[in-house]
């Protein structure tokens, strides 16, 4: 027993702070889970931002909520609810998209309808459950308390699978994302890749939702990737940077949430957004200095 009750105040001695936090097993689990989730979300999110599929990603993160609510209602494992619903929704979005290319009014209307309906389903499940759950807030805004060792194992296993698939198809996916037409001409199976990527996105979202809550997954998926793509134009480097930023933001968020009584999702999204703004400012500054700073990857249309 390190302290009598509850966490003591934050001291600027980080070493002591981490020692104190990690004396609680649930915090160790939270940091492990946070690390796993941040790495997956950083990597998959990077491709999502590159492919401009933020709206689809957002819809998938919304789906995490009915997934968790349904799992609560029927009394099965939360992880199963998260992964089942997110992957199923990813397949549904892939099926609705007809010609395999993102964008378009029709698609975004469809995605929006699917999203709102699924959230409504989540609300229905919560209303039917009426149980001891203090409300949907923990599912929506995240909680780092009570993450078990088994959950961390499941998260890690799924993360390894997602990253392995991503590593195998990474090169082709990059090609197909940057220039789908040329990639298709070269024999890359753009449509298959697109579907596969949506499934990966679903899995990554389900992972992240368990930490940040369904509504704030987006902070962990989009912001590190967008920040990294602001800072460097080279794909490999910016992918790594995205993962690193995600990890830093999550751990800082956990640190802050341990010492202050506000939700984890708030801290994670705030830190990530601060990094995003800082990157924008840095780019603007560099742009002023060099008169014109263009990102080769996003700005250069083939």
């Amino acid at each position: 027993m390190p302290q009598s009750d509850g966490p003591t105040a934050f001291s600027w001695n980080l070493l002591a702070d981490f020692q104190q936090m990690w004396s609680y097993p649930f915090m160790v689990n939270a940091f492990r889970a946070g690390a796993v989730v941040a790495v997956v979300a950083g990597a998959v999110g990077w491709f999502m931002v590159l492919r401009r599929q933020t709206f689809a990603g957002h819809t998938l993160s919304m789906v995490a909520f009915p997934g968790a609510a349904f799992a609560t209602l029927v009394g099965m494992s939360l992880s199963l609810g998260y992964f089942g619903f997110c992957v199923a929704a990813a397949l549904a979005i892939a099926g609705l998209r007809r010609d395999g290319q993102p964008g378009g009014a029709g698609e975004s209307a469809a995605t929006g309808v699917v999203q709102a309906f699924l959230l409504a389903c989540g609300y229905l499940f919560m209303a039917l459950y009426k149980g001891l759950l203090e409300g949907p807030q923990a599912l929506l805004f995240g909680s780092f308390l009570g993450i078990t060792g088994d959950q961390v194992l499941i998260l890690a296993a799924v993360a390894i699978a997602v990253l392995a698939v991503l590593a195998v198809m990474g090169r082709q996916l990059l090609f197909a994302s940057v220039d789908p037409q040329v990639a298709a001409g070269r024999g890359v199976r753009v449509r298959l890749l697109s579907t596969l990527f949506l499934v990966l996105l679903g899995a990554a979202t389900a992972e992240a939702a368990q930490i940040t809550g369904a509504l704030l997954v987006f902070a962990l998926m989009v912001l590190p990737a967008a920040t990294a793509q602001q800072l460097t134009a080279r794909p490999g480097r910016s992918l790594l940077l995205s993962v690193a930023i995600g990890l830093a933001v999550t751990w800082l968020g956990l640190l802050a949430a341990f010492y202050w009584p506000y939700p984890l999702g708030f801290f994670v999204s705030t830190f990530a957004f601060a990094a995003f703004l800082a990157a924008h400012a840095a780019r603007a500054l560099a742009g002023v200095r060099a008169r014109q700073g263009r990102p080769a990857l996003l700005g250069g249309a083939a």
Binding site: L215, G265, T270
Partner: peptide, 16 residues
């Protein structure tokens, strides 16, 4: 996406 990810986080802060 970036802006509202943060705004929603802020919302959860106000809720708390």
């Amino acid at each position: 996406g970036s802006a509202f990810a943060w705004i929603l986080g802020l919302g959860s802060f106000f809720l708390t």
